Amino acid sequence: MAHRILLLAATAIAKSEEQVGPTCSGTIELKGHGPVQMTNAYWNVPEDLAGNVEVVNGAIEVFMKGRTYFSDACGAKFNNSRYSRLYLLGKRLRWTTDISQTDCGCNAAFYLGSLHQNADVSKCEDYYCDANDVCGVRCAEIDLQEANKHAFHSVLHLQDDNSGSGLGYGGGGIDWSWHRDWTKEEYGPGANCIDTNHPFEVEIGFPLGSNGELQALTTRLSQVGSPCELQAEIQTASYIFQGRPSASELTQALHEGMTPIVSYWSNEDLQWMDGKGADGLGPCAEDVPDSCGPSVQFYGFELESLDERLI
């Protein structure tokens, strides 16, 4: 065992001394858009090596601490101009996720960031940015899915708002509770609508108001063979941060095109996402990162107008 630990440590040191650059894990098909290449992060957070991400039979398989970026091209060096820009205003994005190996303390995430527009290489050396300053650079962020088998959230973030405004189920602390749009009887292992022991479909919509700005973020979860679906929405009119209405800033970020990002990580303090909360209605009394399975999957990506469905 001691020999194996030393070998793993030596491998990590050797990798850290290599030239920092991306791993190009393969190409997926985004129906309604075209082929997309995946560019894997080198660092999970500064000085902490990222986990692996693979493309297997058209599915993105993300291993613990892995993060990957939708890209128009993947080269030998990180380049923000290669990151994909999806134009999502007035459209919906749909995919299937398998998070059956996750548990309390795990986060299988699919989200948007303004990476293409970010000229700052960041502390992760790959132009990564988000609303939580993970790699030292902030930008607008839209969490389409932050989830494990027990909790699911979609969240809008202005670039300087860590918490944001969201929807879904799970989370809270001693004196507060987060989203309660659904219940553990509707979403979770063995639940009657979305049984997270099996893959399920997520659909996120970006409807426009009469003024041409983002009106809401809509989330719909469905599952083959299920008798019901789960739906909720965030109205941008209700999301005001430090006196700033969110609609115009989020509309601008979406108008410029945002980059989809997939990641998988864990933490012993993920109660904000999956905790019981003050009302006791959340799912997880304790977060146990060691219970997280090795990987999660995302596949079956489709992009279409809100006015019509793909045939």
Rank of each mutant, 00 (worst) to 15 (best):
N267W: 02
A14D: 13
T259K: 00
Q117S: 12
D290C: 06
L86M: 12
T11S: 12
K123A: 08
H157D: 08
E54R: 14
L156H: 01
Q231V: 11
M38T: 02
A285P: 04
P199K: 14
R92C: 06
T11M: 11
G51W: 10
F241S: 12
E302I: 07
Q252S: 10
G280R: 07
Y69R: 06
T236V: 08
H255L: 12
G136W: 04
Y239L: 02
W265S: 01
A131E: 04
I311L: 13
S305F: 08
D307T: 14
F298R: 02
L88W: 02
E233I: 01
N52K: 15
I234N: 07
F298P: 01
C106L: 06
D287A: 07
C135P: 01
N52C: 02
L112S: 01
V262R: 04
H179D: 13
V296L: 04
N162A: 15
G90K: 05
F63Y: 14
E18H: 09
S16I: 08
S248C: 06
D269Q: 14
V155F: 05
D181V: 06
I234P: 00
V20C: 04
G172H: 06
S177M: 07
V45D: 07
N44E: 12
Q159C: 04
L250Y: 03
A9T: 11
G32S: 03
C292V: 05
C193S: 15
C139I: 13
Q37M: 09
T251G: 03
T39N: 02
N52P: 05
T236G: 01
W265M: 14
G190I: 08
W178P: 00
D103E: 15
H153A: 11
H3L: 05
Y169L: 02
G225R: 10
D143V: 03
R180N: 15
G166W: 07
D161M: 12
F152G: 00
R94F: 07
Y127S: 01
Y187I: 09
L156D: 11
G225T: 06
V56I: 08
S84H: 15
